[in-house]
Nucleic acid binder design. Structure first.
Length: 490
RNA sequence: GGCGCUAUCGUCUAGGGGACUAGGACGGGGCCCUCUCAAGGCCCAAACACGGGUUCGAAUCCCGUUAGCGCUACCA
C-alpha cells in the first residue's frame, strides 16, 4: 500500500474521438468520487494531440455528458494540444540527459522489419541500431535535415508499482522496447504527453482503465528520467457487453447521451455504474450521490471486468424514480410533458399541487421518465384513443358495455364527494345491485377513462381526472360504443 | 506469438483459513396483496473454472493448467 496523498489531485483525460462512453463515465465517476471523498480536486483534460481523430463535436459531447451526470470538474479544462512546447522541452531534456536518443529509421523500414520478424514467428522489438550511431554521424544527419524521431532508452532492471487496485504489478524492462516519444514532425506520442501533463497538473493519483496497465511501466520510466515524483496508479477493470466482449455499439446504447434520451436519471446511471467495479459492502445497492461519496474508498475497488446489464440499469432507474424528491423529478419531466403537447407551463403552474400528486401516482409504475410521460396523456387530453386490445378484452359486447358505463356514470354522478372512499362505495354497491363482480365495472370504466387496460387504481384515476373530465370521458365512451354497435348491426 | 491482468449463481456482487448448508441484488419461476398493471411482501431454481500443494481445516494462501480480456504503432 502506498500512503494516501493528503490533498489528492485526480483527472479524467478522455480523447475526443466520439461520445462519452459508459466506460469513460465510470472512470470519471470513480475519479470524481475519490476526489470528493478525500477532499481533493477533480480535473478534466482533453487529449487532443491526434488532430486527425478529434473533433469539436466530440469534445462538446464529453462536456455535456459530464454535466448531465453532475460530474463537475475544478479549474480550467486542459487541452493537451496546447502544451506542445512543454512536451518538446521534456523530450529535449531526456535527449540532453541521455535518457533518449534520435532514431532515423523510417516507418517503412520499421514496418518491413516487423513483418520480417513476424514471418519468422519472432516477436519484434526495436533493435536500437540508431542508439549505436556515432555522435558525429548523428550531428551530420541532423544537420543534413534528415528526419528523426526521439526514442526513450529503456534501462536495465524491472519496473513495478503498487497499484491501488491490483497491489504490486511488475514488468521486466527487457520486455519493453525503446518507444518513440516524439514523432518526426516533433509532436509528442501519447505516453510522453500524458506524463508531461500529469506532472504539470500536479496529479497525485492516476486512475484509469485496465487497458493502460501496459503503458504504466513506460510512464514510470519517463517520470524517473524527468526527475519527477511518481503519482499513485489505480487501474480499474473494464466494462464488457453481455457477451463478455468489449462494450461496443453492437450491445446497444453505449453513449451516456443515449441513456439521457431514454429517460434515465443521472443518479440512477451513476449508481449503476458505481456498482460495476466497486462495492460499498454490506449489500448496499441503491445509493444517492451523497451516499456514494461518503462510502467510496479504494478498498471497495474490484479487479474483475464487469458486464453491463441493461436490465439491472432499468431496475435501478425505477428505484431512483421512486426515491428522489418529487421536486427534483418535476423539472426533468415537465419539459417532456410540454414537448408531448399535453400542457403548457402556465397551466401546470396554476395547479402545481395536483400536478405533483399526478407525478407521484404515475412514477410508481414507471421505469423511465419516458414511461411517466407516456402514462400522463389521459389526465390532460380532451379525447383519447382506445387501445384495440383493451376494447376487445373489456368492451367485448359493445351494447352491454355502453349500458354498464351509463349506469356507472349515473352512480358516479350521484356520489356526494369526489374522493376515493365514497366513489368506491358507489361503484361497489352498483356492482352488487347488478350482481356483477366489481372488476366487471372497474375494467370497462378503466378503458373509458384511460383507453387502456392498465392504469393506476381506478379511484385514483377518477380523483386525478376530476369529476368533469371523468364524466366527460365516460359519455364519450358510451357514444363511441353506441356508434360501433350501429356499425356492426348494419 | 510475447508480455500483462482476471477467474464465486446467466449478470452485478458479499466473503480474505474454521462463522458456508456460500449471503444479497438484477433477471427467471411461484405465491400473497388486488379493480388491471406496477410497486411491495414471502418462497424456489441458480455459483466457488480445473489440477496439484500448504494446513488439523481452503471459496479464501501458493504453484500449475485452462479460459477470457488487454497491450504489443511516428493511435490514444
Amino acid at each position: 500500500m502506498t500512503d494516501t496523498p493528503r490533498r489528492p489531485r485526480l483527472r479524467f483525460a478522455p480523447s475526443p474521438t466520439g461520445y462519452l462512453h459508459v466506460g469513460g463515465a465510470r472512470t470519471a465517476l470513480f475519479n470524481w468520487l475519490y476526489a470528493k471523498h478525500f477532499g481533493g480536486q477533480f480535473l478534466l483534460r482533453i487529449e487532443d494531440t491526434d488532430k486527425a481523430r478529434g473533433t469539436d463535436a466530440s469534445t462538446r459531447a464529453i462536456f455535456e455528458g459530464l454535466q448531465w451526470l453532475g460530474l463537475d470538474w475544478q479549474e480550467d479544462v486542459v487541452y493537451q494540444g496546447a502544451n506542445l512546447e512543454r512536451h518538446q522541452r521534456d523530450a529535449r531534456t531526456m535527449l540532453d540527459n541521455g535518457a533518449a536518443y534520435r532514431c532515423f529509421c523510417t516507418p517503412a523500414e520499421l514496418d518491413a522489419r516487423r513483418k520480417d520478424a513476424e514471418s519468422r514467428k519472432e516477436s519484434f522489438k526495436y533493435d536500437r541500431r540508431c542508439d549505436r550511431l556515432p555522435a558525429n554521424e548523428v550531428t551530420r544527419r541532423v544537420a543534413a535535415g534528415e528526419p528523426f524521431v526521439v526514442r526513450f532508452r529503456i534501462p536495465e532492471g524491472t519496473t513495478s508499482w503498487d497499484d491501488l487496485v491490483h497491489d504490486t504489478i511488475s514488468f521486466p524492462n527487457k520486455d519493453l522496447e525503446d518507444f518513440v516519444i516524439l514523432r518526426s514532425n516533433a509532436t509528442p506520442i501519447y505516453n510522453l504527453a500524458v506524463v508531461s501533463d500529469d506532472m504539470a497538473m500536479d496529479i497525485t493519483l492516476v486512475m484509469r482503465g485496465d487497458d493502460h496497465i501496459s503503458n504504466t511501466p513506460k510512464q514510470i520510466l519517463l517520470y524517473k528520467a524527468l526527475g519527477a515524483a511518481l503519482p499513485v496508479f489505480a487501474h480499474l477493470p473494464m466494462i464488457h457487453g453481455m457477451d463478455g466482449k468489449k462494450l461496443s455499439k453492437r450491445h446497444g446504447a453505449t453513449a451516456v447521451g443515449d441513456y439521457q434520451h431514454q429517460g434515465l436519471l443521472p443518479g440512477a446511471m451513476l449508481n449503476f455504474l458505481a456498482l460495476l467495479g466497486w462495492s460499498p459492502g454490506e449489500d448496499r445497492e441503491v445509493m444517492t450521490m451523497e451516499q456514494m461519496i461518503e462510502l467510496f474508498t479504494p478498498d471497495g475497488l474490484l479487479r474483475k471486468a464487469a458486464i453491463f446489464d441493461p436490465k439491472k440499469l432499468d431496475w435501478m432507474n425505477g428505484q431512483h424514480l421512486s426515491l428522489i424528491p418529487l421536486a427534483d423529478l418535476e423539472p426533468t419531466v415537465t419539459p417532456m410533458m410540454i414537448e408531448a403537447g399535453f400542457v403548457d407551463q402556465s397551466s401546470l403552474d396554476s395547479r402545481r399541487e395536483w400536478y405533483m400528486s399526478l407525478l407521484d401516482m404515475l412514477r410508481v409504475r414507471a421505469r423511465t421518465t419516458d414511461d411517466i410521460v407516456r402514462q400522463a396523456g389521459p389526465y390532460f387530453l380532451d379525447s383519447i384513443a382506445y387501445d384495440p386490445e383493451a376494447v376487445a378484452k373489456n368492451w367485448k359486447d359493445p351494447s352491454a358495455a355502453a349500458d354498464i358505463l351509463q349506469s356507472t356514470a349515473d352512480a358516479l354522478g350521484a356520489t356526494s364527494s369526489w374522493t376515493p372512499e365514497p366513489l368506491e362505495a358507489s361503484l361497489r354497491s352498483l356492482a352488487d345491485a347488478r350482481g356483477l363482480a366489481a372488476g366487471k365495472i372497474f375494467q370497462p370504466l378503466r378503458v373509458a377513462l384511460t383507453g387502456l387496460a392498465v392504469s393506476p387504481g381506478i379511484f385514483d384515476v377518477l380523483v386525478m381526472q376530476g369529476r368533469a373530465l371523468a364524466l366527460h370521458r365516460i359519455q364519450s365512451a358510451v357514444r363511441w360504443l353506441e356508434s360501433s354497435t350501429n356499425i356492426s348491426a348494419s
